[in-house]
């Protein structure tokens, strides 16, 4: 299965200079829609009763809208500073689950769900000592060689030929005799 047919891939593109001086919360606006009577909104109503005030206090940079509407399923809409809009159904979710999702939404910097990151690193200055080349850390004497060079162009790790082996054995015998 070709994964890339369904998943957009991309690179890390954090909000411009976020975190350089200080970190700015990227969630701008949160809209909670729910029904006052239907069972599917039970968890959302519990959440509004128990957690919403605390949540708003903790995330003071977020504007929270609560919008009751008759006979419609509960919905969370998060809008971010970069213009992303994340729509989420909260049908039949309990209040703890909703709190978890909302705290995730407030920590995110946009709608990152559909992106597969190709790298976990982004830099504006990829190399400080210069990129590696085949001549990096090499002897500067190599600059003066005229290629092709027999010595350098020789095959490395050549197995010992029969002639060489014989010569070596003879030499060894001579050495032992001399001793």
């Amino acid at each position: 299965m070709n994964h890339s047919q369904f998943l957009i891939s991309g690179f890390l593109r954090p909000p411009f200079y976020n975190g350089v001086g200080r970190q700015i919360n990227q969630l701008q606006r949160l809209t909670i829609k729910f029904c006052k009577s239907h069972g599917g909104s039970k968890g959302m109503r519990d959440f509004i009763e128990n957690h919403l005030v605390n949540y708003a206090k903790e995330n003071q940079s977020v504007v929270v809208y609560v919008k009751p509407r008759r006979h419609r399923s509960p919905v969370i809409v998060a809008e971010y500073l970069n213009g992303d809009r994340r729509w989420m159904s909260a049908q039949n979710r309990n209040h703890e689950e909703i709190l978890k999702w909302l705290s995730l939404l407030s920590l995110q910097a946009g709608d990152t769900e559909p992106i597969r990151y190709r790298k976990n690193w982004h830099t504006d200055c990829p190399s400080i000592q210069g990129p590696w080349t085949p001549f990096t850390h090499k002897n500067p004497a190599f600059n003066n060689i005229a290629f092709p060079d027999k010595e350098l162009g020789k095959q490395l790790n050549m197995p010992e030929t029969a002639t060489e082996k014989l010569l070596r054995l003879v030499q060894e015998q001579k050495n032992t005799k001399n001793e």
């Binding site: 954090p14 975190g19 995730l104 920590l107 990152t112 559909p114």
Partner: peptide, 9 residues
Amino acid sequence: TIIEKSLSH
């Protein structure tokens, strides 16, 4: 500085 907490794809 930590600037984002999120979930992967």
